[in-house]
Amino acid sequence: MKLSCDEATKICDKNQYGEASLWDKIKLSFHLFLCKKCGMYSKQNTILTKCYNNHKDKEGRTEHCLSEIDKKHIEQEVKARI
């Protein structure tokens, strides 16, 4: 039942992705009830997840392409080896 702070914050991180098991969540709640340091980590983790999600929404829309110069360069290299 007893978790170290390292283990508790690891579960807390896993929980941000909705992938902590029920038993993990029970152990985490018990730890957070007693540990203010991890309580702070947990609170801030929720804020950070919102930041990461915002960042993801921005990044996810970006389609990455090679520049025409790079494509030409790769094409030359490939054709030289055919």
Binding site: Y52, K56, E59, G60
Partner: peptide
């Protein structure tokens, strides 16, 4: 995991 959101 976080930005591209691939499954574990």
């Amino acid at each position: 995991k976080t930005i591209q959101q691939f499954e574990t």
